[in-house]
Amino acid sequence: MRSAIQKKVAVIVAHPDDETLWAGGTLLSHPEWECFVACICRANDADRAPRFAAVMQALGATGSMADMDDGPEQTPLPIPAVAEQVLQLLPYTQFDLIITHNIAGEYTRHRRHEEVSEAVFQLWEQQQLSSPELWYFAYDDDSRSHFPLADPTADIYLPLSPDIYQQKKNIITDIYGFSHDSWEAKITPSAEAFRTFSTVAEAAQWLNRNRILP
């Protein structure tokens, strides 16, 4: 999956590793994209933050991190605060493509994923972020009955080539440093999937059907 079309792409995620787990193969397949990754958590994590910087090099991207609360209690964050943090992280507000979390998350359950999804949609709806396309990660674990899997019914379903998948897996284990028997390494998807929207009305309808918050 390679294209000569150059795009300015924003990938907006909750945690360092989300960009790789859910879209890393897609980014590796498009070296011509000018990609910026905005991550709202863990900027002050002495282990994860420098690894995130190294991952950006491996993905051919640039990125920035913030340090919003990510404690185990998952205390809800105000969506306007998440949206403001996203705007502060991004170098500009006009993109050809924005990619972010599913409104229901990628597995059961992480509130920060849902909050980022909601915030990005509101920014797009209010035209504070501009892009002709908005893509949501499309994965599901069927209420923890299996590891998160790419949804084959999504608008885009991309089985990764062995080479791209190995590059992606190496980022998780060799750069992020997760052991080969860690949850992150075990669930690293070998296919990626996205729900795609070109109008606010279509996206709003889908979000209203699938939203979990509050």
Rank of each mutant, 00 (worst) to 15 (best):
G105K: 06
F36G: 09
L27F: 07
Q166R: 15
V55D: 04
D141K: 00
E115Y: 04
P16A: 11
Q6L: 13
A154K: 02
L129C: 03
V116W: 00
W22P: 04
T199R: 04
L89W: 01
T173S: 11
F197V: 00
T26E: 11
C39G: 05
I79G: 00
S29F: 09
T62H: 12
V13W: 00
L90Q: 04
T173C: 14
F194Q: 02
M1D: 10
L207C: 14
K7C: 02
V120F: 02
L158A: 09
T20E: 09
L158S: 07
P72M: 13
F194L: 10
E32P: 02
N210E: 13
Y176R: 00
D141A: 02
P78V: 06
A119V: 01
Y139H: 00
E192V: 06
K7Q: 15
V116Y: 05
H113Y: 06
I156E: 10
N170C: 11
S179P: 08
L21Y: 04
E34P: 04
Q166M: 11
P159F: 05
T26G: 04
E133M: 06
Q85W: 04
D67W: 04
A193E: 06
F36H: 12
M65P: 07
A58I: 10
L149F: 08
P214M: 15
Y157L: 02
K8L: 10
Q205S: 14
G105A: 02
V37L: 03
H15S: 00
R42E: 14
P16M: 07
D67M: 02
E133V: 14
D140V: 03
Y139A: 07
L160A: 02
I103N: 04
V55C: 12
